[in-house]
Design a protein around this nucleic acid. Structure first.
Length: 458
RNA sequence: GCCCCUUUCGUCUAGCCCGGCCUAGGACACCUCGCUUUCACUGAGGCGACCAGGGUUCGAAUCCCUGAAGGGGCGCCA
């Protein structure tokens, strides 16, 4: 076990943002890559915004993405408690320490951190008020990802609010010291505030940890970083849409980091083996939903048939496409047929619905499109007597039948494929027609084709 | 307004640290053709970028400077 200790310190707000997930992921990856320890600490200092329910969202999402923590809620550890709401006495003690050292003072009911340096009163154009500007020596941050960053803090800042609650900057640093965190890996949005944190470390007489500020995930379109209202921004969305967690995790890894071996889709063990903080990019990445979908599709296709069936059945159950009475053997056959054509589990109910009901919709667009090139209902009408006469709907039978009908009616045999598919499935695409017909069986095929003729024949 | 970070195809990126192997490679998306008597998979090809301007150098995507653009921070939010 190495000395490396990373942490993810979320604030339970009721949702798990994709950016937070990636921050957690990089912390987790680095701990795993170095044989270190990954700590989960809950920053619930803002009591009004935190509930048990909100906490569960985070813990569940972490587990879903396969990020296990070595210390933290539910698992304990030697540096607890891991909830900031349970550490107030400790914070009070550390604030006392700063006051004793003359590095903190009370003003307007709050407690402020005192910077060292010459002071002058200045008017702030941006905040539209006067403040005491401090000419403090610049702080040097030796960032693993960004290199040397120099920044001077120029005004005292609040560390304990008027209501007695400690502020993020204070508790974050105090806890990182107490929990012996060696690497602080977080979003670039914290980079500017890092000078505050380093000032605190110095005031406590502690060597700051190594910092690594990772780039942000930007909106697909428009300006700014992903916000919770953006499509694809919340991990819950992927969960409810039945994305494969390994796919989401793999995709997240590729946003801001690339493996040396050039692969994009690779097992997490291989990612861990290659991951290094120094290789994390410096520039922000724009989120691309389509590439996320591609990763998901690749993972889905790679699934063994049993695993696919195991995942698919609940999705179909939830959508009420199947129930307890559904024949298991038939279900397995349908899933085996559809698996190679699927690109996402959330489209599955729609994709296979017609296998389980006679009451399925006909895709209007597909119908309109086909009608432009021919008359699907007419082709189907020609099919009815031929199907009635046929012994079965096996591939060879169907081929012969199309051949014969094409010659009789002056059209190509292939002209029957699309209309027939539309009649029996209501869709323009799907599994191979031959297999599809055979699985449905002659009776259902015939009745569906008849029904289609009745409904759409001119 | 002040401060910090960033800048290669539409998007994710390789290359950049240690200048020539870069007529800039890959992936997603898009387009074309082939395979498949349907759908899909797949195969082959195509489209498409070094932010701009100055330097340094025999030579710059790679080094330096300036500018522009994008992002972030400046809160008794985290």
């Amino acid at each position: 076990m190495s000395e490396v200790r990373t942490r993810f310190a979320p604030s339970p707000t009721g949702f798990f943002h994709i950016g937070s997930a990636r921050t957690a992921l990089f912390n987790w990856l680095y701990a795993r890559a170095t044989g270190g320890t990954f700590v989960l600490r809950i920053e619930d200092t803002d009591k009004e915004r935190n509930t048990q329910e909100f906490l569960d969202v985070i813990l569940e999402s972490m587990r879903w993405l396969g990020m296990d923590w070595d210390e933290g809620p539910q698992v304990g550890g030697d540096y607890g408690p891991y909830f900031q709401s349970q550490r107030s006495d400790f914070y009070k003690q550390k604030v006392r320490e700063l006051m004793d050292k003359g590095r903190a003072y009370e003003k307007d009911g709050a407690i402020w951190f005192r910077l060292e340096g010459e002071r002058e009163t200045v008017y702030d154009d941006f905040l539209k008020k006067e403040y005491e500007r401090v000419h403090a020596a610049p702080v040097i941050i030796d960032d693993i990802i960004r290199g040397r960053v120099e920044r001077a803090e120029d005004r005292d800042f609040v560390i304990v609010r008027g209501n007695g609650e400690p502020v993020f900057h204070l508790v974050n640093v105090v806890d990182d010291i107490a929990m012996k965190i060696t690497h602080v890996i977080r979003g670039e949005d914290h980079l500017s505030n890092t000078s505050k944190h380093v000032e605190l470390y110095k005031a406590f007489g502690v060597e700051p940890p190594k910092f690594a500020h990772i780039p942000l995930i930007l909106k697909t379109e428009g300006s700014g970083k992903m916000s919770k209202r953006d499509r694809g921004a919340l991990i819950e969305e992927y969960q409810s849409r039945h994305f494969l967690p390994a796919a989401v995790r793999n995709f997240l890894c590729m946003l801001g980091w690339t493996p040396k071996d050039g692969r994009e889709i690779l097992p997490i063990e291989d990612i861990i083996a290659q991951f290094d903080l120094a290789d994390v990019h410096q520039a922000n990445a724009r989120f691309d939903e389509r590439k996320m979908a591609f990763f998901n599709q690749e993972y889905l296709r790679a699934l063994p048939d049993e695993s696919f069936a195991w995942l698919a059945a609940p999705v179909l159950g939830e959508a009420k496409v199947i129930d307890d009475k559904t024949d298991e053997d038939y279900l397995q056959k349908v899933l085996a047929l559809c698996k190679p054509k699927m690109n996402a589990l959330d489209t599955l109910p729609n994709f296979v619905g017609y296998f389980f009901t006679e009451d399925f919709p006909i895709d209007e667009k597909a119908l309109a499109k086909q009608s432009k090139r021919g008359d699907p209902a007419a082709r189907c009408r020609e099919l009815v007597p031929a199907l009635e006469a046929a012994a079965d709907v096996a591939p060879a039978t169907i081929d012969a039948l199309f051949e014969k009908l094409g010659a009789e009616n002056g059209v190509k045999p292939t002209d029957y494929f699309a209309p027939m598919r539309l009649a029996v499935s209501g869709q323009a695409g799907g599994p191979g027609l031959h297999e599809l017909l055979e699985l449905l069986g002659k009776e259902r095929v015939l009745s569906r084709v008849k029904k289609f003729v009745e409904k759409f024949a001119k």
